[in-house]
Simulated assay, not measured.
Amino acid sequence: MSIVDHTSLQLTPHISEAGVHDYVALLKPRVMSLVVFTALVGLMLAPGGVHPVLAITSILCIAVGAGASGALNMWYDRDIDALMSRTALRPIPQGRVTPQEALAFGMTLAFFSVMVLGILVNWIAASLLAFTIFFYVVVYTMWLKRSTAQNIVIGGAAGALPPVVAWAAATGSLAVEPALLFLIIFFWTPPHFWALALFRTDDYARAQVPMLPVVAGADATRLQILLYTILLVAVAAAPWPLGYFGAGYGVVSLALGAWMLWLAIDVYRVRTGRGALRGPRRLFGFSIIYLFALFATLLVEALLRPLMAHGW
């Protein structure tokens, strides 16, 4: 069945069989959890502190905005999701949620997340959240994903913005620190997703998504993974000597970066046999741990900052 045929079938009206778990799945909860965590770090690093109610409101709005992006992404990508084994069990391809329901759900969440953040917190943060949703849904999902092998490089900006939104929610302004957090996530995204694409190449090829391994081949992808990992390690370590983050962060960054780089070198070197797929899987799995541990270290530093200021 072609992509066009599948789309036409999905547009046929029918009674929804959706349950609560299907609408939760539309939010992409695993992606949302990473968004919430990085946003929380951005909020905690912001100077001056923020009222707990406003902090909770900000994080909830960012989470709902991320969920809205996920729902709208699934609405638009329902044709290719049905063709990929990784996404074929999502609610829309399975027919449990209609495209119209997903669209209405996503648009409603997007509208209220931006408006609540603007009215209750500030409009700078709300504008950034609106731009993040727009960038992910329109620029990445509707344009870049299906038109260029650099889709996740440019599109990665959307996933890198939540800590910037959170910083703006806390301070009403922007600064170097959230820009550094943005750059870390931005350069983390290509090796993370290209590692996934290496062992899911057949999926992307079947759905005609021009991921780098499909367009340029596995060897070129392995080289790009290595180059971006080198950039990531350098960018992630730079805030320590520049004086923006503490020594604890610097040590953790270097240790995690060394392991991330070793895995990327292994992906680049081993191109045949079982290791050709094992390496990308290991890198993909560790990349999640890498980003979580890096931001967790920053969160610990932020929590300890008041104690250190009092000499404890």
Rank of each mutant, 00 (worst) to 15 (best):
H6C: 12
T12F: 13
L27I: 14
R30V: 03
S33G: 15
F37W: 11
T38Q: 02
T38S: 03
A39T: 00
V41K: 03
M44R: 12
M44Y: 00
L45N: 10
I56W: 09
T57W: 04
I62N: 04
A63N: 01
G67C: 02
A71C: 02
N73G: 00
M74D: 11
Y76S: 13
A88L: 04
L89C: 13
Q94S: 14
P99R: 03
Q100T: 15
A102V: 10
A104N: 14
T108K: 06
L109Q: 02
F112L: 12
S113H: 02
V116F: 05
G118D: 01
G118E: 02
G118Q: 00
I119Q: 10
S127N: 07
I133G: 04
Y136T: 03
T141A: 09
W143E: 00
R146D: 02
S147Y: 12
S147M: 10
A149Y: 10
I152T: 08
V153E: 11
G156D: 02
A158S: 14
V165N: 03
A166I: 04
A168R: 01
T171C: 11
T171D: 11
L174E: 05
P178I: 04
L180I: 12
F182Y: 09
L183K: 09
I185Q: 08
T189R: 01
L196A: 09
L198P: 04
F199C: 09
D203P: 04
A205R: 11
A205C: 03
Q208V: 15
Q208A: 15
V209L: 11
L212W: 12
L223R: 15
L223V: 12
L226K: 08
V233K: 04
V235M: 09
P241S: 00
G243L: 09
G243P: 00
G243R: 08
F245D: 01
G246L: 05
S253V: 02
V270H: 14
T272C: 12
G285M: 12
I288E: 13
A296M: 03
T297D: 11
L307C: 01
G311V: 06
